[in-house]
């Protein structure tokens, strides 16, 4: 009698059958809708849902739409104002919280930073609307910039804090030991080493500001429309291929910045 010499396929005990396929479905679920959206932006049909052929016409049309251009400019003005403000505030906070040792307002201050993440966005949006309205502050884009600065702070803070925690505190002591005073230690050691972290924080804050919709919708008055708010009004009027085109561009922009951030961070870590 011949014994069967067929070897059973070896599988590590921590390898579960089916999990790989499930993960593929998971990523499909995350990315297929985005993929479909981008595909349809190249659809030549006037009706967004029916595919008739490949075309760039909706992208071309964007460049003749003044409203979209104004909204885009507004979005960039807000992000270029709010992200640097948030980054500066986050940098100083991180320096005090990571390098400041133990002190009385420590817990309170780190609580303040995470507060915008804890409160539901719709509540922040409504509260800020009431706040500006009841104080009679109606400065158009400046209202939006203030609101964006607030919720960008925690996002700018995270990478800066991480960079500062990863930095050997002895480096600053070594500089002090080598006859450099507080100011020049900050300029020659701390700041150059922290720059990648600060830039990362800026990028995240920038993306968060560009993408924000709910708070901007509530806070922005007429004339202060940003791109997401404009897209929302277009969607509400009915799905048009133009929405697909401008949405695809926005997605591409965010993904570009975040990918940049990722490569940048990987370089720091190596």
């Amino acid at each position: 009698m011949q014994t069967k010499n067929k070897k059973r396929k070896f599988r590590y005990v921590w390898n579960f059958p089916g999990f790989g396929g499930w993960t593929a479905i998971f990523f499909g679920f995350l990315y297929i809708p985005i993929f479909i959206l981008v595909c349809y932006s190249f659809n030549s049909s006037k009706f967004a849902m029916i595919w008739t052929g490949f075309s760039f016409r909706w992208y071309a049309k964007l460049f003749s739409n003044d409203d979209i251009q104004t909204a885009t400019i507004n979005s960039f003005i807000v992000a270029f104002a709010a992200a640097p403000l948030a980054t500066i505030i986050a940098t100083f906070s991180a320096l005090a919280l990571v390098r400041g040792g133990e002190f009385r307002f420590r817990e309170f201050s780190s609580g303040l930073i995470t507060l915008p993440l804890m409160v539901p966005e719709i509540v922040t949006a409504v509260a800020t609307l009431i706040f500006f309205a009841s104080l009679g502050i109606n400065l158009g884009l400046i209202n939006v910039i203030i609101a964006h600065t607030v919720f960008c702070i925690p996002f700018a803070f995270m990478p800066i804090k991480a960079a500062l925690e990863a930095m050997d505190p002895n480096l600053e002591l070594a500089a002090r030991d080598l006859y450099s005073d507080k100011t020049s230690t900050f300029k020659t050691i701390t700041l150059p080493l922290l720059t990648p972290g600060i830039l990362s924080g800026f990028m995240l804050a920038f993306v968060i500001s560009i993408d924000d919709f709910i708070i901007t919708l509530m806070v922005a008055g007429g004339g202060a429309t940003t791109l997401p708010v404009y897209i929302y009004s277009m969607v509400k009027m009915g799905v048009s291929p133009e929405v697909n085109a401008v949405s695809s561009l926005m997605l591409a922009f965010s993904i570009f910045i975040v990918t940049l951030y990722w490569f940048f961070n990987r370089k720091i870590n190596n």
């Binding site: 002591l173 002090r176 030991d177 080598l178």
Partner: peptide
């Protein structure tokens, strides 16, 4: 430390 003539 920056005023002390010792190094580490």
């Amino acid at each position: 430390p920056n005023k002390r003539p010792v190094n580490t």
